[in-house]
Design a protein around this nucleic acid. Structure first.
Lengths: 165, 165
DNA sequence: CGGAATCCGCCACGATACTG
DNA sequence: CAGTATCGTGGCGGATTCCG
């Protein structure tokens, strides 16, 4: 069905054998990266998560996402629709009504994403702690470095003023 | 580092009750989003994937990623280090040598990411097909719309030139 | 070798106004 | 209501230079 002809605009992965892990990353023009970038998109995740529960109208989405501009919402939805993750249904009424819903493919993506969100929720405390510790270290280092430079400057200045040889 | 440090960790989610699914998405300042954005980062995934196999030096990393600037590599590594995903080891030799390796936390993240990459690889054909179909439809629509406007213009022009009432 | 600091182009995104 | 079109800008990311 959808099998076969991957016309391969770059035909990245599945050379088989070894680790495919190393295949998808080095090529930045790889198609996997394109899709990943879309998924990684700031708004896509939110839209997908919202649509997973029920289909929504444009304005409902706009209201729920809170912070998205209509421009970005439109773009995001178009992209998701293009990728076959979201289905757009236009009701020829007046005023117009457009419903958005997740396709089966989109639903499977949402499942996959959830594991990542779960990971994030589970480890956000560790990460926060790590960040705090890092910031403390960084601040300390910056301070010592600063002290050293001022001291160095003081020495140099003293050498120049007191005994210019 | 001119990076925007996340002040106000203000513990976003877990207001309890209902679905937590709906908690992490609506708040854009949520910490989960911050972490997700980092993961979504163009280079972070690549670096993590490479470090999963073995620890690497700075230059090795730079050579393997292919396309990254030293600035971005440094930034990426600093961020990952700050989040506790990567450990940085400086050998006080000359010339200097710095090794980067995944922390246990970073390793678990890599595992989680892998499921997403697997999903992408598994469905990239469907997505490519969907995109192609969408593009065809879009092109067709654009063409009809264009035809309509030209026709409309022709009618208007005729009306103005032949019988200006 | 492994960075830090500086300059700068560019485009992604937001705000606004208009349309059907 | 559900978009498109247009313009202005902030910041991301690349190139370059200098330092330890």
């Amino acid at each position: 069905m959808e099998e076969g002809t991957s016309k391969s605009p770059g035909h990245c992965g599945d050379t088989g054998g070894d680790y495919d892990v190393l295949q998808w990353d080095t090529r930045e023009d790889c198609e996997v990266r394109q899709i990943l970038d879309r998924i990684a998109d700031k708004w896509s995740l939110l839209v997908i998560a919202l649509l997973d529960r029920r289909s929504l109208r444009f304005t409902e989405l706009k209201r729920e996402v809170d912070g998205i501009s209509q421009r970005m919402l439109t773009r995001t939805l178009r992209h998701l629709e293009r990728d076959g993750l979201v289905r757009r249904t236009v009701h020829p009424t007046v005023p117009p009504r457009v419903d958005y819903e997740l396709t089966p493919l989109g639903a499977t993506l949402h499942d996959t994403i959830q594991t990542l969100v779960t990971w994030t929720e589970r480890h956000q405390n560790e990460i926060a702690a790590s960040r705090a510790a890092y910031d403390v270290r960084a601040a300390a280092e910056r301070e010592t470095a600063e002290a050293e430079t001022t001291e160095r400057n003081a020495i140099a200045h003293a050498a120049l003023t007191n005994r210019p040889r």
